[in-house]
Amino acid sequence: MTPETPVSEPKTPGRLYRAWDSDLAYAFRTAPVAIVATVVVLIVVVCSVFAPLIAPMNPYNPAALNLMNGFTPPMEPNAFTGEVFLLGTDGQGRDMLSTIMYGTRTSLFVGAMAVLFAMVMGISIGLFAGWRGGWVDSALMRIADVQLAFPAILIALLVFGIARGFIPDALRDQLAIWVLIVAIGLSDWVQFARVVRGASMVEKNKEYVQAARVIGAHPLKIMFRHILPNVMGPVLVIATISLALAIIAEATLSFLGVGVPPTQPSLGTLIRVGQGFLISGEWWILLFPAITLLALALSVNLLGDWLRDALNPRLR
């Protein structure tokens, strides 16, 4: 038995070292799938975020386009101009690599914002339902159940259709991207709300919450400062997996033609445009955006799966 009073350590190790030394970091270093997925996600994210700086051309600047470059196959010199494009060009002579970089930018932005929206909404509702309990909880969770019974895409389409009726024509293209974010976010908050509600019902009966109640701490403070940090683990896992789903949902909606406007094409729009050229032999216009979408969604999903396993102490 060591004495109760500890000898104070000379210095506590730095934050960075502790992060490197943590269980999560160790689990990460020993999981090749997670490392590969992270690398893929990082490449895609960096390429899209810095697209204006590193893309070979701005595909949406009409002055930079040369119609003579249209339908250039990948890695082959164009028959008229002799220019070479890594991933080829589309019918209007846009460089596919640049188009994909800009398209991923839109996809990632919509996906991330939609998840953020769903997270904020779901966490708030879940915390409130878990804290209050009783009929408030029952009512909120029945609403969640009803929404869960509808496919997410259907809800997104519904929100999109309603928004279209409200927004004046002039603003439609500007606001389309935000409508899309709200539509995807609204179809996704239920998962966050359910998980946060369940976890906070467990947490709220723990003694540290009672200790805060004894001193009369404000319920909002208890919810957000005490309970929320302790339920963030599962929330992060869902957020990661939701990001992959949101990117796919955005692509689906854009593919169906209800997503982002053609002036700001996303990966989904590119795939929709590209599939028209598949039969006529210009396969690269479809294939490369599709591969990018697949790689991004798969990597984010694998990361989410890994995170779920790594944060679950019972699986260790």
Partner: peptide, 15 residues
């Protein structure tokens, strides 16, 4: 007034 709880593993917020 104040309270001291039974389980010191639950009465301190781990975060």
């Amino acid at each position: 007034f104040q309270m001291i709880f039974q389980d010191p593993f639950a009465s301190l917020n781990p975060r």
